[in-house]
Amino acid sequence: MKTLIRLTALTALLLLTVFPALAGGAAEVTREGPTISIASKAWTEQLILGNMLLEILRSEGYPVEDRTGLGESDVIRPALHAGQVDIYWEYTGTTLLTLMEHDPVGDPDEAFNLVKEWDEQNNNVTWLDYAPANNTYTIMMQEDEAEELGLETISDLAAYIRENPEEISFGTNDEFYERQDGIRGLEELYDFEFDPDGVRFMTTGLTYGALREGQVDAAVGFGTDGRIPAFGFINLEDDKQYFPVYNPAPVVRVEIVEAYPELPDLIGQIAALLDGDTLAELNRRVDIDEVEPEDVAVAFLRENDLID
């Protein structure tokens, strides 16, 4: 009997918590048309960007559905092509290299035009204007260690490894290890080779923690990540301009643009504001100041008078 009472109480509590969450929600829907389902991948920058779309569309009265925080493109792409997801931010380089299996491209416009044309022809999906931020790869080290060894550029690192082949361990995710613009091309261009036993695979977010805890000497990260300065890392300069461009841009189903022709201009206002430093600062607010991504997105849109 006691169990039953406890169970009832628990259920009631759960229901109480679900319903306000369902009833909650800000602006009223004032536009007629299909509901726009907004997705993002499950990491900081993606969550911020996704929430920006969500908030601006919501405040302009569009019917929206929040699907932020999904898996990688293996989850989002099938959903996009099946019409379960309508819009998400993708990086030009990612689509170019993984989906199209194209060679790396260094020019932002060229990369953008290639992916846009490909998606329009094959998937009935288009790309809206890209942001100037370039969230490409970076090779990170702890500042102390880099200084001690006198390393500032990737060329320095390459020279050091050529002389001390077994000293530097390297933390990488699978993507960087596998892809054409990843570790092998880097080794080729800079003419060195990481000690195969010193290359340690891990999931993307873990490279920062592993480097901070001294589990590896160098690691791959993303240029706009706020943890790089906050954890006392430095980015080794890509002095031979090896890494291609990764500009974020909203990828949207053509049907949605046809239903809401004014949508690209509205969203374009956000993209235009997002240069590398801005994005790094927004990421830092989440990763270091521990503000929730939703709140960072809303604050940014307010600061720029894009929402009330």
Binding site: A42, G71, T204, L206
Partner: peptide
């Protein structure tokens, strides 16, 4: 299941992992 759109306790774990939290 958060990777395929569920919003459950996995959100805390998943985001905690990618945000080093």
């Amino acid at each position: 299941a958060v990777f395929i759109g569920e919003r459950n306790l996995g959100v805390l774990i998943q985001q905690g992992l990618v945000r080093t939290r």
